[in-house]
């Protein structure tokens, strides 16, 4: 399927480009925008964006593969990202990950069959005081316990998105 950048996207993109003396500086913000719309950055999207910004495709691809936040395949509706760095590790991140693997029946990097959850183990999220930390899409959940995790998963399954802070 041919991928085209919508006029609406282009309007927003022009505003973002205008923040920089060179348009190509907007590459990462624009990739984030594309991902926000589609849940991932498809090859076609990279092609379209490289054309839009007048950049070699290879540069766009290199950027997409360098940064960890870009999904190259569609992620689930809820992307559960468990921090596993030192503070979260000490606070029980391995147990949290194990619980999620068991509850969802998937390994890290996988998505549940219903397309609801993607599970990832990630490096330090910069919220170590709230360890262990779980990020759901763009929101942080701190001091996650087994009980809190159960409630959270139930809420998410029923389309209830809890407030984070």
């Amino acid at each position: 399927m041919a991928f085209t950048l919508t006029d609406e996207f282009k309007q927003r993109a022009e505003k973002i480009c205008a923040r920089y003396p060179r348009r190509d500086a907007a590459l990462i913000p624009l990739l984030l925008e594309l991902q926000r719309e589609a849940g991932y950055v498809a090859e076609e999207a990279m092609d379209a964006l490289s054309g839009y910004l007048g950049l070699p495709y290879s540069r766009v691809k290199a950027v997409v593969t360098f940064y960890t936040m870009f999904n190259r395949v569609p992620a689930g509706k809820y992307h559960l990202q468990v921090c596993r760095n030192i503070s979260c590790h000490m606070a029980g991140a391995p147990g949290l990950l194990a619980a999620l693997r068991a509850r969802l029946g998937i390994e890290e990097g996988e998505t549940t069959k219903d397309g609801l959850f993607t599970l990832s183990a990630v490096e330090c999220l910069g919220a170590c005081g709230d360890a262990p930390v779980l990020q759901v899409n763009e929101d942080y959940f701190g001091r996650v316990t087994a009980e809190k995790l159960d409630v959270l998963l139930e809420d998410l399954k029923h389309g209830k998105y809890p407030s984070t802070r």
Partner: peptide
């Protein structure tokens, strides 16, 4: 906004990233 790379905390890597590079 960055997009997930610890190295961008290094100031010249940050500049590269801000310019739209790796």
């Amino acid at each position: 906004r960055g997009a997930g790379a610890y190295i961008c905390g290094e100031e010249t890597a940050l500049l590269e990233s801000l310019e739209g590079f790796k």
